[in-house]
């Protein structure tokens, strides 16, 4: 990990408070792996507000171009600040951080469960698994939030969609949809990222089908490097730091609140 000043190459408003950034940051891009994350320092010059950097998973890692791509939703002051940067702006970054996904090329058939703004890190893992047979379950509140669907469609034709309002795919959630389609022979591994209730449901379904997998978690974070012990989640071996032992955890290790 290191601190690097990146240059914002492109910023796109995808609607519904969703933004896509392309950042030139050669050193971090060179080292980053799918599932890892970076911290972006979201204040300028002498300002101490917002005080903390914001963690973002990596939507794409383009090593040849030295670029990182982020996709995020504006939810607070840090993401609001970031969404207002212009092309050419400098961004102070720390990364790559945390533990990423197991290489999908170790498996033959893979399932991907993407819930809303949990989609981005899964795209980076799918991009390295072009030779792997994978199936995407992608859910969001409505059609407009199923962003970058066309890019997914370029990678696979095995895509199942669900939206809360039924504006695309099946009305409802992707776990209900998956449970009607999958059996224990459907895959030998899975990756999931999304809201906690979704991850909990995915984990339960996959445990029933005896398919192992990994979940990418998020938590409120401060240092991002493992020093402050602020971002812990519950695991079968006690509290673990999302920034260091995670953000990707073996699904069976993660303990959800009942």
């Amino acid at each position: 990990m290191q601190i690097e000043t990146g240059e914002l190459i492109n910023i796109t408003d995808k609607g519904n408070n969703l933004f896509h950034l392309i950042i030139k940051a050669d050193k971090i891009a060179d080292k980053a792996l799918p599932g890892q994350f970076i911290q972006v320092y979201c204040s300028e010059g002498e300002s101490y507000d917002p005080l903390l950097p914001r963690p973002f998973s990596l939507f794409r890692i383009e090593k040849e171009k030295g670029c990182l791509e982020l996709v995020f939703r504006v939810v607070g002051r840090g993401t609001s600040w970031l969404s207002k940067r212009h092309t050419g702006s400098s961004l102070k970054l720390l990364g790559p951080l945390g533990r990423g996904f197991t290489d999908p090329r170790e498996f033959s058939r893979v399932l991907i469960f993407a819930g809303g703004i949990g989609m981005p890190p899964l795209f980076s893992v799918a991009e390295v698994s072009k030779e792997v047979d994978f199936t995407l379950f992608y859910g969001a509140r409505s059609q407009g939030e199923l962003i970058f669907l066309e890019r997914w469609q370029q990678m696979t034709d095995q895509i199942f969609l669900a939206t809360d309002d039924g504006s695309a795919g099946q009305q409802g959630n992707i776990v209900e949809l998956a449970s009607s389609l999958l059996d224990s022979g459907s895959a030998d591994f899975y990756y999931a990222c999304g809201p906690r209730p979704m991850l909990k449901a995915v984990k339960r379904l996959m445990a029933k089908l005896k398919i192992p997998g990994e979940l990418s978690l998020e938590e409120r974070m401060a240092c991002g490097v493992g020093a402050c012990l602020g971002c812990v989640c519950r695991t079968t071996s006690g509290y673990a730091r999302v920034c260091t032992e995670g953000p990707v955890f073996a699904a069976e290790e993660v303990v959800f609140n009942e």
Partner: peptide, 14 residues
């Protein structure tokens, strides 16, 4: 340690 969440940012503070 304590159950999460363990952190919350406040104006110029934590």
């Amino acid at each position: 340690g304590n159950p999460p969440p363990r952190l919350v940012e406040t104006p110029s503070g934590l």
